[in-house]
Amino acid sequence: MAPPIVRGTAAWKYFGDFRDALLAEQVLVLQVAHPVVAAGVLEHSDYTADPWTRLMRTVASLSIYVYGGPAGARVEAERLRALHRSFTGVADGRRYSALDPAAYAWVHATLVKAPVDVQRFFGRPLSTSELAEYYAQMCDVGRMLGVRERDLPPDWAAFERYYDSMVAGFTGTPAIEQLFETIRTARKPVPFLPDSWRQGQLFLIRATLPPEFRERIGLQWTAEDQRRFERFARLVRLVTTPIPAGLRTGPMRWLGKLNVWFRAHPRAYRLLVRGNGPGATPSL
C-alpha cells in the first residue's frame, strides 16, 4: 500500500515540478503514437483550433489527481471516464474506444514516466527508494482513474520494461504529424514569445524522445544537437535545482486546490472561466 500523497512524499515533490512542462509535447507525441489514442484524437479532438486552452484544461485535471485530495481525485476520475465513454469510432476497419484498457493504461504510463525523465534530464535522478514510493503512489492514482490492475506493472523495473516494449512497437501516425504541424502553426500561448519558441518546442521533443523511436519516425538528431541539449539541460539544472520542492510544485498544487473549489462552485467556474469544469476537454 502506497503512502498517501502528502507534503514531502515522492509524488508530491515530482509530479507537479514546474520543469515537467519541458516534456509536455514529448508526452503528447508518445500518447498519440498509440494507434487507438491516435484514432480518437483525429476523430474527436479539436485541439488544433486552440491547443493551449486544451492543454491548460488538461493540466488542471491532472492537478486534481495528485494535489486535490482523495475525494477530489475520485470525482475527477469519474468525470474523466464519463467524458471518454463517448469517444468511440472505427479506424482501419476496427472499432475503438478511448476507454480501451491498453490505450487508457498507456496514457497513464506516459504521465507517470515524464516526471522521472524530467529529473533525469534537468534535475537530480530519483533514488531507488524515491522511485519505489513515487511509482506506488502513481499506481494508486491509476487505480482511481480506472486503469486495470493487470495493466499496472508491480514495480518500477517492470514498469520500465513495459514502457520500453510499448515504445518499441510504435511507428509514426498521422496524429503525430498533425501535432507537429500544430506546434509549427498554432498561435503562440502568449503574444510576446519570440518566433524561435516554436523551434525550441520541436527541439525539446527531438531531444527527449526515446532515441530509437525518434529515428523510427524520421526525426534527425546530430552530435551538435546533443551538445546543445546538454548545455541547455545543465543551465536548467543549475538554475532550478536549488529551488525547494515546495516552490517548484507550488503552481500545480495551487491549481489542484483551486479546481477542487471550482468543483464545489460550478457557477463560479462558468462565470470566471466560461467552461464546463476543470479538465472539461480531452488531453488533445
Score class of each variant (00 low, 15 high):
Thr53Asp: 14
Thr53Val: 09
Arg54Leu: 02
Leu55Pro: 00
Leu55Val: 00
Leu55Ile: 11
Met56Val: 13
Met56Thr: 09
Met56Ala: 12
Met56His: 13
Arg57Gln: 15
Thr58Ile: 00
Thr58Gln: 12
Val59Ser: 12
Ser61Ala: 15
Ser61Phe: 07
Ser61Lys: 12
Ser61Tyr: 04
Leu62Thr: 09
Leu62Asn: 12
Ser63Tyr: 01
Ser63Ala: 15
Ser63Arg: 02
Ser63Leu: 01
Ile64Trp: 05
Ile64His: 02
Tyr65Asn: 03
Tyr65Lys: 01
Tyr65Thr: 00
Tyr65Met: 11
Tyr65Glu: 03
Val66Asp: 04
Tyr67Gly: 08
Tyr67Phe: 13
Tyr67Leu: 04
Gly68Leu: 11
Gly68Ile: 07
Gly69Asn: 07
Pro70Tyr: 08
Pro70Met: 07
Pro70Lys: 08
Ala71Ile: 10
Ala71Val: 13
Gly72Pro: 02
Ala73Gln: 03
Ala73Leu: 06
Arg74Ala: 12
Val75Arg: 15
Val75Ala: 15
Val75Cys: 01
Glu76Gly: 01
Glu76Met: 15
Ala77Val: 07
Glu78Tyr: 02
Glu78Pro: 00
Arg79His: 11
Arg79Ser: 09
Arg79Tyr: 09
Leu80Lys: 13
Leu80Ile: 11
Leu80Val: 13
Leu80Cys: 02
Arg81Phe: 03
Arg81Glu: 01
Arg81Asp: 02
Arg81Met: 06
Ala82Met: 05
Ala82Lys: 14
Ala82Tyr: 03
Leu83Tyr: 13
Leu83Thr: 03
Leu83Val: 01
His84Pro: 03
His84Trp: 03
His84Asp: 07
Arg85Ala: 13
Arg85Asn: 05
Arg85Leu: 13
Arg85Cys: 12
Arg85Gly: 04
Ser86Glu: 15
Ser86Gln: 15
Thr88Cys: 11
Thr88Ser: 07
Thr88His: 09
Thr88Gly: 02
Gly89Phe: 07
Gly89Pro: 01
Ala91Ser: 15
Ala91Thr: 08
Ala91Leu: 01
Asp92Phe: 05
Asp92Cys: 05
Gly93Tyr: 06
Gly93Ser: 09
Arg94Val: 10
Arg95Tyr: 04
Arg95Pro: 04
Arg95Asp: 10
Tyr96Ser: 06
Tyr96Asp: 05
Tyr96Pro: 09
Ser97Arg: 12
Ser97Asn: 10
Ala98Gln: 06
Leu99Gln: 10
Asp100Thr: 04
Asp100Lys: 08
Asp100Asn: 13
Pro101Asn: 09
Pro101Thr: 08
Ala102Leu: 07
Ala102Lys: 03
Ala103Cys: 04
Ala103Glu: 07
Ala103Thr: 07
Tyr104Asp: 00
Tyr104Pro: 06
Tyr104Cys: 03
Tyr104Gly: 02
Ala105Asn: 06
Ala105Gly: 11
Ala105Thr: 08
Trp106Leu: 09
Trp106Ile: 03
His108Gln: 11
His108Val: 06
Ala109Asn: 10
Thr110His: 02
Leu111Trp: 11
